[in-house]
């Protein structure tokens, strides 16, 4: 199932609606990398609220995605990771590295706005 990507101002919001297969995730990665250029987006928020599992593949893919988005000039904020999922990820030894995180979509938007007010430069 394709993840819908919404454009809101300078931001793109990808909100995952159902469980993701590896193929879905790679497809999301490709579309986001492309659309960031098309819409000249300054940041991307990926909402993972519905995900009940984040394994090594998903984490690796999201991390690589954030890195390539940064090269395309956009910041990435990952929001909505569930407490149990966060716990399992750390037990597994997974980290999102330098990718910014926030509790939910609202917090993610707030984080980006605050960064903008501080002088344009986005979360790294």
């Amino acid at each position: 199932m394709q993840v819908p990507i919404l454009k809101q101002g300078d931001y793109l919001i990808a909100s995952v609606q159902a469980v993701l297969t590896d193929t879905d995730l790679l497809e999301l990665r490709d579309r986001l990398t492309e659309q960031v250029g098309t819409y000249r987006a300054r940041a991307v928020i990926i909402d993972l609220t519905v995900l009940d599992v984040m394994d090594s593949f998903a984490t690796r893919t999201l991390r690589a995605l954030a890195q390539s988005l940064r090269l395309r000039g956009a910041a990435t904020v990952i929001v909505g990771i569930q407490p149990d999922v966060a716990f399992a990820m750390t037990q597994l030894g997974l980290q999102l590295g330098s990718v910014a995180t926030a509790l939910d979509l609202e917090e993610g938007l707030e984080l980006l706005r605050r960064q903008e007010r501080r002088g344009g430069s986005h979360v790294r």
């Binding site: 009940d52 599992v53 984040m54 394994d55 593949f57 569930q82 407490p83 149990d84 999922v85 716990f87 399992a88 990820m89 037990q91 597994l92």
Partner: peptide, 11 residues
Amino acid sequence: CELTLIATAIS
């Protein structure tokens, strides 16, 4: 919490 650990391990 355990369910998530189990599901992740299976994954």
